[in-house]
Design a protein around this nucleic acid. Structure first.
Lengths: 201, 201
DNA sequence: TATAAATTTGACCAAATAGTTAAACTAAAA
DNA sequence: TTTTAGTTTAACTATTTGGTCAAATTTATA
């Protein structure tokens, strides 16, 4: 495979990612991807046979990146007291900088049962370490009794939801002011970390 | 306006709601709505001029219902110690029974800035009572220091996120088992209430 | 350089889909 | 009963859109 071919292929995938992540599978037109990549529409079909296959390549990529980032944060070696504020801060920053990614994943998973199954294995094994750590610290009475899965989902809920509900929150609580919303998210780094801390210690 | 006409109009709106809420604006075909309502496609255009207008009617309806339910729960008269577990339980039940509604709202808000503006006023005034109550109980040292907006969003996060992330959670944590997922959500009624309780008392 | 292979393009096709229109039908009013 | 207004339908249109294909162009190989 020549360098040029690799370039074109990557160029297409990146352009497709930008468009798909913003507009979703249903809202994206092949022509729009071609424009974004500054190439002919036929080239999309030359490298990726169909819209569906191109979408799956994008989705898989996005999902892998997301899982990599999330599991890296959750599976570091610090004890929870150190780790949880770190998770909240790092994760809030990441989501704030890539606000479309999580909405994209959740939106597409809502209607794509086939892709899910393929991705299950990638995910389920990744959080054993964190789960074990929580179970361990519970049994040592370092933190209050809580099932690791629930603590895990609580952390994700508190960090992810405010990002995907941005339009709603900004409209309902900030009268449409984007600055106020961003400040609110910034505040949450400390608020959420304190909230979880109070809840489990 | 005759009874028949009202019936047809309502029938269309309800059919459209069912389809739009599941598949979204982009994913819905007018023919599908016509089939769901068991009428001719032209009738849709007779009563609602265009897909866009029909969609807006559905969205507005859905939003109003959602806001009504959520504000009713948040603005009741009990003190927080009683109210919060009630919010969590009632709200988890409602979301569990209507899992598509919140995904629908968030999904469509992601790409519809015009509709948002129209709906802002409806929302922003609705939660003063709850906000004041939280501020009050904080100042009386009944609960720990926290901004009302953050407590509000924390409660919503912890209840809503696990619903919209259902496919992800089920796949990653329950190996695809729907029963386990539903049991998990049921468990959360107590877990989340306890979690918040520990965090603010 | 000449030939073959890979890459890129523009023109085109078929299916899907929102929307239109005129005719048919229904029910109430005159 | 006849007329009129409101309702419903079938057939049609225009446009969008995913996808194809043969020709043109570029790159690699003999």
């Amino acid at each position: 495979m020549s360098d040029l071919k690799q370039d074109t292929e990557r160029n297409i995938l990146q352009a497709a990612s930008r468009v798909f992540i913003k507009k979703g599978m249903g809202g994206t037109r092949m022509q729009e991807i071609a424009d974004e990549a500054k190439i002919n529409k036929s080239l999309l079909h030359y490298y990726y046979r169909s819209k569906q296959l191109l979408f799956e390549a994008v989705f898989k990529n996005t999902m892998l990146e997301f899982i990599a980032i999330i599991s890296k944060i959750f599976n570091s070696d610090e004890e929870l007291k150190i780790k949880i504020p770190l998770i909240v801060e790092t994760y809030t920053d990441y989501l704030g900088k890539n606000p479309y990614i999580i909405s994209f994943i959740l939106r597409e998973l809502q209607s794509e049962p086939k892709i899910i199954l393929k991705i299950v294995e990638m995910i389920e094994i990744k959080f054993f370490k964190f789960f074990n750590q929580v179970a361990q610290e519970v049994s040592e009475k370092k933190i209050k009794e809580i099932k690791p899965e629930h603590l895990f989902i609580n952390i994700l809920s508190l960090t992810i939801f405010p990002i995907i509900a941005k339009p709603l929150i900004r409209a309902a609580l900030m009268k449409g002011d984007n600055e106020k919303y961003m400040q609110f998210i910034e505040e949450r780094k400390k608020v959420v970390a304190d909230f979880i801390f109070s809840a489990i210690y």
